[in-house]
């Protein structure tokens, strides 16, 4: 064979697995929206936890640990949101996608509800993935999965302070990247 050990190196999550969780998340969200309708908020963490409970009910061994599942779900959630934002953008070119409210964090400036521009985040995140895979994983789990620092530390097998440092640095870097592209255009 041309490639002696083709398995090595491709340790990323199986696309099918992410599609599976993606499907679960979408179905759950859809049924949630059908029953709750209007003005309720829907937290990604709530959705991810719901999906986990559903899966854990039918089989506790389906996923090795809760945090591992949460990380997979964060990736799937990222897909859900990116796809949504992209299709919105394709629909009304240049109309600008409506932001998704985020947790403003410690220093909330007086701007009303802070919002995230999912596509700008995605662009920065893809760049970050190439520069520092671990920081990108931290950001993904934090922004899209709403995982706690402890959960992220356990998924990535690093210390809590590493996660905190990664998050703080990556956040500042992403903010700088996003501001850079905005002022550049």
């Amino acid at each position: 064979m041309a490639s002696p050990n083709p398995d090595s190196g491709s340790t990323q999550l199986s696309p099918q697995l992410i599609e599976l969780v993606y499907g679960e998340l979408r179905a759950l969200a859809a049924s949630y929206m059908r029953h709750q309708r209007s003005s309720h908020t829907l937290q990604p963490t709530a959705l991810v936890n719901e999906a986990f409970l559903k899966i854990a009910r039918s089989n506790s061994e389906a996923f090795a640990s809760r945090s591992h599942f949460m990380a997979v779900a964060a990736t799937a959630m990222r897909q859900v949101l990116i796809n949504h934002a992209e299709s919105k953008n394709a629909e009304k070119r240049g109309g600008g996608s409506r932001g998704i409210p985020i947790d403003p964090g410690m220093a909330a400036p007086d701007l009303g509800v802070a919002q995230v521009d999912v596509l700008a985040i995605e662009e920065g995140l893809r760049k970050l993935e190439k520069l520092d895979e671990r920081k990108a994983r931290v950001v993904e789990a934090k922004i899209f999965g709403g995982l706690s620092h402890e959960e992220i530390a356990s998924v990535l097998g690093v210390s809590l302070s590493t996660v905190e440092g990664d998050w703080r640095m990556a956040k500042a870097w992403l903010a700088k990247e996003m501001r850079g592209t905005q002022s550049g255009e």
Binding site: L42, Q43, P44, P101, G105, V116
Partner: peptide
Amino acid sequence: EGTVGVGPIIDIA
């Protein structure tokens, strides 16, 4: 000054 626009998403309804 606070990293505006980067933070955990809190509502996807």
